[in-house]
């Protein structure tokens, strides 16, 4: 039996775990193609127009898997930590897909909710495994395999390698560049190269090493966000704020690029918060890139190039200053 996993949303965060889990249960795992024009076009056609581009792309990736697999895995991710929620579209996406009359294989949508769970993902995966075997021991073994795969994936990421290097055979950011930029955005925006316009590749070409939240310990990021007087409602918002603060406070990067999907409500607020709280008060270099369906690379290149030029000139200037003093 073959199970398809669309290359969308939290794919670049959890794919190794899901793959190891299903394979240990004896399933063949098929990821959808890397986003291409065809997938984008069909997504825009089939999806609701008010969704952001990452959500729209789920439609295209599901259709890409349509004739290749027996089931499609599209988890309903409700919460990843105590008392915060995922974006409502993440929670609703399996229903949105089911009701879009797409003529697709059955969708498997376990609810993943760690808000009040003491055992992490375990309960969700136990229920998920039951769909394929009655043998609980086998499920527990598969779950352990999944956790192991996730752990070694995360260890690799912490060394500064991007998910694309590990999963898609790219070679980004292995080199040691002089300028470092932290991208503050979600993995499904940064690492979907169609959505991000190949941002990492462009930055590499400009001699920039790229860091993202995947390369930092997740708990450390969330702790960073705990300084806020009121806990943000969205896990994603906490992640963005925490990442930006971590990058700046630890002096890991020369500048920050915030990636915001056009039409994303929560991000538009968090973006403003990061700017007012973290970057503006100390004049930390920051630029916001808004992403949508457009495919013209030029506007992106212009902004990134100008931003990098600014960082280089600033750095030269500061180096000159410190040598004088």
């Amino acid at each position: 039996m073959r199970i398809g996993i669309p290359r969308v949303l939290l794919f670049y965060r959890y794919y190794p775990m899901w793959k190891a889990f299903f394979e240990a249960l004896g399933l063949e795992v098929v990821p959808s193609s890397i986003t291409n024009k065809e997938i984008v076009d069909i997504s825009v056609e089939k999806s609701v127009s008010e969704a952001c581009i990452p959500i729209k792309l789920v439609y295209g990736h599901i259709l890409d898997l349509k004739d290749k697999v027996d089931f499609i895995f599209l988890p309903r991710i409700v919460g990843l930590e105590y008392r915060t929620y995922m974006c409502p579209k993440f929670i609703g996406i399996p229903d949105m897909i089911r009701n879009a009359s797409l003529d697709i294989p059955p969708i498997i949508d376990p609810t993943i909710d760690k808000r009040n769970s003491l055992t992490g993902f375990f309960k969700s995966f136990l229920e998920l495994g039951r769909l394929f075997t009655k043998n609980s021991l086998k499920i527990i073994q598969a779950y352990t395999e999944g956790l192991k795969a996730l752990k070694s994936y995360n260890e690799e990421l912490r060394r500064g390698i991007t998910p694309l290097d590990i999963l898609d055979g790219k070679n980004y950011g292995g080199e040691d560049f002089n300028i470092k930029i932290g991208i503050v955005g979600h993995c499904y925006e940064i690492y979907d190269e169609f959505i991000s316009g190949g941002m990492i590749k462009i930055l590499n070409r400009l001699g920039v090493k790229v860091l993202s939240m995947e390369m930092i310990d997740w708990r450390a990021i969330l702790r960073e966000a705990n300084v806020l007087p009121k806990k943000l409602f969205w896990t994603f918002g906490r992640e963005l704020y925490g990442t930006a603060r971590y990058f700046i406070r630890k002096g890991l990067v020369d500048g920050i690029i915030m990636v915001v999907a056009f039409g994303c409500g929560p991000d538009s607020l968090v973006r403003e918060l990061i700017e007012r709280d973290l970057t503006k008060p100390i004049n930390f270099p920051e630029i916001t890139i808004t992403i949508d369906e457009h495919s013209s690379e030029l506007g992106l290149i212009t902004r990134l190039e100008a931003f990098v030029d600014m960082l280089i000139r600033r750095k030269q200037y500061e180096d000159n200053l410190s040598s004088v003093w």
Partner: peptide, 11 residues
Amino acid sequence: GIVVDFAMNSV
């Protein structure tokens, strides 16, 4: 004499 910030019209 150093560019410290810039912005372009967005969408």
